[in-house]
Amino acid sequence: MAALAKAPLVLLEECLKTLGPLPDYQLLRPSETGLAMVRGRSEGTGDPFNLGEMTLTRCVVQIVQPDHPAIAGFGYVAGRSHRHAELAALCDALLQHDDWAEGVHAQVLAPLQAAAQAQQAAAAAQTEATRVNFFTLKRGES
């Protein structure tokens, strides 16, 4: 679910297209935008405090097929994109569906994770290039 939430919407849409026609689904709870209060900890490890809020959109979809039990999928994404939350919920539902799980893993999750990793590695390499080794100079008095 984290990979679906963190993925750029454009990429998620592209990956989903490769799956071909998707099963019908209904919105059990249509996309809704609200807030999450983000908390931090004093000193990073101490008592929690409220840092500030962030926007978040959630959605619940349901796949109902005659020969299958109903499957509910949940989507939670940062920001205000209703479409993103809906697609994340749909993927979550498909991942619980025997006929779809494998395809979604291979054609959606894997490329999304690969893209995220590539981006993280590139950013890490840029940060690494700024690694500094300070040295202190001996002063003349001794």
Partner: peptide, 16 residues
């Protein structure tokens, strides 16, 4: 906007 959730405290020790 309605407040829907409270996050778990950020784990800044795991910051990238």
């Amino acid at each position: 906007l309605p407040r829907l959730y409270y996050s778990q405290p950020l784990d800044t020790g795991k910051m990238v």
